[in-house]
Amino acid sequence: MGNQSKGRLVWNHSTHIQGLIPVLEQLISYPGITTVTPGVISRSKGHSPRLKLRISVPIRGGYKAIARQGKTVQEVFIVTELSHEELETAINTVLS
């Protein structure tokens, strides 16, 4: 895969966790990440004071991740050829 073009961010929801979109926009500029799609938003019992993005489960062609901020949780689907470890490194880099 020789082209170094930016991946795409899919806007399929009108609501997103505060601060999530800038992080996802940084993530799609990573080589090997093709598509990032924010999914369903829900409420959680726990409270996360700052934005977290954690890889949850593998999906076909990538991974599902869970974004958390405050009491809000949002699924994020990441289509990538990166390994679990490489994606985790990319996520930690854009969150730091």
Rank of each mutant, 00 (worst) to 15 (best):
17 I>Y: 08
40 V>W: 03
4 Q>G: 07
68 R>D: 06
89 T>E: 14
61 G>M: 10
62 G>N: 06
30 Y>K: 08
84 H>P: 00
69 Q>W: 04
42 S>W: 04
10 V>I: 15
61 G>Y: 09
95 L>Q: 07
39 G>D: 10
48 S>G: 03
87 L>T: 06
12 N>S: 13
26 Q>Y: 04
23 V>K: 14
24 L>Q: 03
35 T>W: 01
17 I>A: 07
70 G>Q: 04
21 I>G: 07
8 R>D: 15
48 S>Y: 06
10 V>F: 05
84 H>C: 02
56 S>K: 03
22 P>I: 12
67 A>K: 01
28 I>M: 05
17 I>C: 09
59 I>R: 06
3 N>E: 13
52 K>G: 01
80 T>Y: 09
48 S>V: 02
56 S>N: 12
32 G>H: 13
23 V>R: 08
63 Y>S: 04
44 S>W: 02
54 R>Q: 05
81 E>R: 12
61 G>I: 08
95 L>D: 07
10 V>H: 11
46 G>E: 13
85 E>D: 10
25 E>S: 13
72 T>E: 14
52 K>C: 01
71 K>W: 01
94 V>Y: 07
11 W>L: 15
96 S>H: 14
13 H>W: 12
23 V>E: 03
65 A>Y: 06
3 N>M: 08
63 Y>F: 15
91 I>N: 00
13 H>N: 14
51 L>G: 04
80 T>S: 15
51 L>I: 08
65 A>R: 03
31 P>N: 12
23 V>S: 03
39 G>L: 06
85 E>T: 09
8 R>V: 15
75 E>Q: 08
30 Y>H: 10
77 F>Q: 08
22 P>L: 06
5 S>E: 14
78 I>V: 15
10 V>K: 10
7 G>H: 05
72 T>V: 12
45 K>L: 09
34 T>G: 10
34 T>K: 14
85 E>A: 12
84 H>I: 02
21 I>E: 15
8 R>I: 15
3 N>F: 08
26 Q>F: 02
33 I>V: 15
92 N>K: 14
16 H>V: 09
79 V>P: 00
27 L>V: 11
5 S>W: 08
46 G>D: 13
71 K>R: 12
37 T>L: 06
43 R>D: 11
82 L>F: 05
38 P>T: 06
